[in-house]
Each structure stands twice: as C-alpha cells, then as structure tokens.
C-alpha cells in the first residue's frame, strides 16, 4: 500500500515535467544496492540512481535475489531521482529461511542528497549523505535473538569517483562509504541489542573497472556490527554487470556473507536486474 502510494506520487511528480533522465554517460549511473540506494550491490554510493542531470528527473526499478546455503533474500524496489540532487527509494526485503522454514519481511525507506561534485567531472569525488529507515515486519526472530528494536535508521556519507582511462585506458570507479548503523543483518534480525542500542560506524567500499561502455566488474566490501553476539561477519562480493542500455542492467555476483543467525559460511549467487523506467 505504501509502495503504491510512493510510485503514485512519483508518477504524479514526473507528469509535471517533460524531461526524463538522459543526462549521464551510460554505465555511470550505477545500480540500486540491496537497501534501494543508488550504488553497487551491497554498498550505497554517492551517485544517484538514474540518468537525470540537474535539469531532469528519473525513476528506476530493480529486483535482486541472493541464494545462500540456508537462506534466500528477495528484494524489490524503486527509486526516484530529482535533478541529480535528491534520491528517494523504497524496497521490500523478503528473507526466506529455506532450512528452518518461514520468512522475514522488512521495508526500507531511503533518502540521499548529493552534497558536492560530479562523479566524472569534478576534481574531488562526488559526495552524498543519506538515510535508510528500516521497519521490520516480522519481529519474532529478532526478539528471540535479543534485538532491542524492530525499527532503525542508518546514516551514511559516501564518496565516489570515476577516473577516465586510469586503469590502463579503462575507466576506474571507486567508492568509500561510512555508515552509522545498529542494524543486525540489514535489520532482518532487528536493531541493536537489549544492552546496547547505539550506532556503530562501519566502513564500506567498492572498486570497479569498466571494461567497455556496457560491461563492468569489481569487488565490494561491507563492514558489519555484531550486536547480537552471533558472530555477524563482514560482507564482500565480486561482481560483473552488463548494461546494454540506460533502461536495463543485469548484475551477477558471488557474495560471501559469512555467518548469519548462527549458520556459518553463507555464500552464494547474487543476481540483480534493474533499469531506468523514465
């Protein structure tokens, strides 16, 4: 219902403008990460989703699935980017407990503001700040594991830069993000712990090479807190993205997500499809 309202609002906003997003070079808009923000696969970047320039807006949608040994994460979401300045996003997580049975759902509402720069053209990296407000829908497991709350907000600051031709003639992209968070496994296992509900500062990073205007590959890393004492591990992945047009991209990654809720070595394939609708 909230999702429908968001997209209705987005379409209404779009109807008042005649210019859709066409204003960035292909493959420089990035993707939507797991929590909906414009970014890589698991890390939010300073770039906004979509190809809007400062005179345009864009709407993007995506769906992602991560198949792990004992779990399966489904993500569907969309984002609205306004004048290459503000990005609003919403996603729905469904986390299937394929070994134990049952699932956990969560909604994430995100907002990001570009503070400085252009990822390609400015001397310094593009800089953005964002929030991700997460509302857990199924709270039983989080409570049982000792989480403090069923909702939480992450705050992040991200710096991203494309260096044209810097990797032996190939374009190089890097991103560094600092995130304040108390989410346990994205929030799927709740927020904080009964004795400790404060935010921890976590570092996240991405490094990629654009092998053509349509093909990129790289690695990502995401530090995570271990509030519940279950040995929550840092995440990393290696990815390949194919971007045949501004309206379609597909990403295949190998994700190593470590221990999740006591089940060790959760690794698997990450598949995401997305693109700019408008």
């Amino acid at each position: 219902m909230k999702l429908a309202g968001f997209f209705g609002g987005a379409l209404l906003l779009c109807a008042t403008s005649v210019v859709a997003g066409e204003g960035k070079l292909i493959a420089t808009a990035g993707l939507n990460q797991l929590e909906g923000a414009g970014g890589g696969g698991i890390v939010p970047w300073a770039t906004l989703s979509g190809y809007d320039s400062r005179d345009e807006m864009s709407v993007s949608a995506f769906a992602t699935r991560v198949n792990l040994d004992d779990y399966r994460l489904h993500v569907v979401g969309g984002s609205l980017s306004l004048y290459d300045r503000v990005e609003l996003s919403v996603v729905r997580h469904t986390f299937d407990l394929t070994t134990l049975g049952g699932d956990i759902a969560q909604n994430v509402y995100g907002a990001k503001v570009r503070l400085y720069g252009d990822v390609i053209y400015s001397d310094w990296p593009q800089l953005s700040a964002g929030v991700q407000h997460k509302v857990l829908q199924d709270t039983g497991i989080a409570r049982a594991l000792g989480a403090d709350s069923d909702r939480g907000t992450d705050y992040y600051l991200a710096a991203t830069k494309v260096h044209l031709g810097a990797a032996a003639g190939y374009n190089l992209v890097w991103n560094l993000t600092a995130r304040g968070t108390n989410a346990n496994q994205l929030g799927l296992l709740g927020f904080g712990q009964q004795q400790d509900d404060g935010l921890d500062i976590m570092l996240e990073g991405s490094l990629g090479v654009l092998f053509s205007r349509h093909l990129a590959a790289g690695v990502e890393y995401r530090q995570k807190p271990d509030n519940l004492g279950l040995g929550e591990d840092n995440w990393w992945d290696v990815f390949v993205t194919y971007i045949p047009s501004k309206h379609f991209n597909v990403t295949l990654a190998w994700a190593e997500l470590g221990s999740i809720a006591g089940a060790a070595d959760q690794n698997g394939l990450y598949l995401s499809v997305g693109g700019q609708l408008w």
Binding site: L164, G165, A166, A168, G169, Y170, F211, S212, R213
Partner: peptide, 9 residues
C-alpha cells in the same frame, strides 16, 4: 575504447 577514455580524460 581505451584510447577513447584517454581522449575524454
């Protein structure tokens, strides 16, 4: 592609 990037840079 690689020469193009260096020209664009």
């Amino acid at each position: 592609h690689r020469h193009q990037n260096r020209i664009l840079a």
